[in-house]
């Protein structure tokens, strides 16, 4: 149970960072922390005590295997997280070139 709580705490740190900070790079970092927490949570749900990795050798049966399905889903989610981070950082760099700041409260003016 303590693992779930620590994971939840990590999520809350990321949420606080996204909601409270005004620097775009800090917000991106907060999103990254949230992503780590969610990935970790999925793998925690599929963990089995004294389980073994879901890799078989030839002619072998493993009975106490950890759940492979969350691992497969998280594998997809990690790569998509990288793509999302790259896209956000590209937009942040463009914003910096245009406005000269990372402060989100100063990025209000609409320029055509």
């Amino acid at each position: 149970m303590s693992e779930y709580l620590l994971c939840l705490f990590l999520f809350c740190i990321g949420l606080y960072c996204v909601l409270r900070k005004r620097n775009i790079i800090k917000i991106i970092i907060g999103l990254g922390i949230i992503e780590y927490a969610v990935n970790l949570f999925f793998v925690l749900v599929g963990y089995r005590i004294h389980g073994r990795a879901p890799i078989l050798a030839k002619e072998q049966k493993i009975l106490n295997m950890v759940d492979p399905l969350p691992q497969a889903l998280v594998l997809t989610a990690i790569v998509i997280g990288l793509a999302v981070t790259a896209l956000i950082v590209a937009i942040a760099i463009r914003i910096y070139e245009k406005y000269g700041t990372f402060d989100i409260t100063k990025i209000r003016r609409l320029r055509g």
Binding site: L40, V43, G51, V74, L75, I78
Partner: peptide
């Protein structure tokens, strides 16, 4: 943490990413 949770594929992918 992924390595401890018996997910070696995830550990490798997470390292690279």
């Amino acid at each position: 943490a992924f390595l401890i949770l018996k997910a070696p594929d995830l550990a490798i992918t997470q390292l690279v990413v």
